[in-house]
Amino acid sequence: MAAPTMHRPTTATSSTQTITLAKGLNMGLRAAMERDPRVIVMGEDVGRLGGVFRITDGLQKDFGEQRVLDTPLAESGIIGTAIGLAIRGYRPVCEIQFDGFVFPGFDQLVSQLAKLHYRSQGKVKVPVVVRIPFGGGIGAVEHHSESPESYFAHTAGLKVVACSNPVDAYWMIQQAIATDDPVIFFEPKRRYWEKAELDPTARPEPLHTSRVLRRGSAATVACYGPMVRTCLDAAAAGAEDGIDLEVIDLRTLSPLDLGPVFESVRHTGRLVMVSEAPSESSIAAEVAARVQQECFYSLEAPVLRVTGFDTPYPPSKLEEEFLPDLDRVLHAVDRALAW
């Protein structure tokens, strides 16, 4: 199923396509598999079904069962064998079906995947990518809406990234696969069907960089993954009220790339950090700590966090309240401005 091409006046963008985030990932995986025969995809239902979100749609048909593996139902098995395959020279891309199901594989992730390069003093590389659809907002039952990224960022040896839009999805998955370190790759599942224009001939930003998506002077809003859309919407609404927000998509959660955030806060004097994850010991907490250290004299208000609450993910009828939304972001901005 080819994505429709955009009809635009022909300049350099004749190769531009409109794609969804899901399609961006699918195209990125395909490109990586075409480029390198050692790239393999493995996980539950990723083969014939193409994954429950269809991210791997068509890959088994085109690359065969040796490169797209419908694995037995065990996350520890998926990650543990991916490590072995990587030691053997493969570049496995594992799919974890939903955020809440990564934990049976957590031991392999923390004890082996994260530490092998260190333990072998660089003699063993484990270029494994673990894809995890994360976050809420889809009305799902328990364990299908969590934001566990902080556990992984807290683990030295793992790199952690989160894409927020179709174009980044396309590039970032390929860059993650090309990385010689293990990468935990978070995908904002409720944004899978959002669309954008992709120019596959463009040059992508490096993987471990954050990006300023919108310039503004009143306050800085930093976010990642599914919250980027929310924050851009908040900025648009804020602009109508004359509040000019600068929005930064962190993209990389470990290592963090906070240079652009520091720079931004030095001229806005205010930071609101937005994330769906609970706030205690989180990415948001880390960003707040570093910004306060680096930008102490520029801050006009404390760094405020807008996050999920410090509770388990609630039944889905309550997720609208649980998840940060445009109003909560702007409420925090108001508080920062009024400080």
Binding site: G100, P104, K317
Partner: peptide, 26 residues
């Protein structure tokens, strides 16, 4: 309630001697 998203299981597992539904396989 589980499927409508109003709770994670509404019965008393000890009284019914029927534990809550468990979604994480195994």
């Amino acid at each position: 309630g589980i499927f409508r998203g109003t709770d994670h299981g509404s019965w008393d597992p000890l009284e019914k001697r029927f534990h809550l539904y468990t979604i994480v396989i195994g």
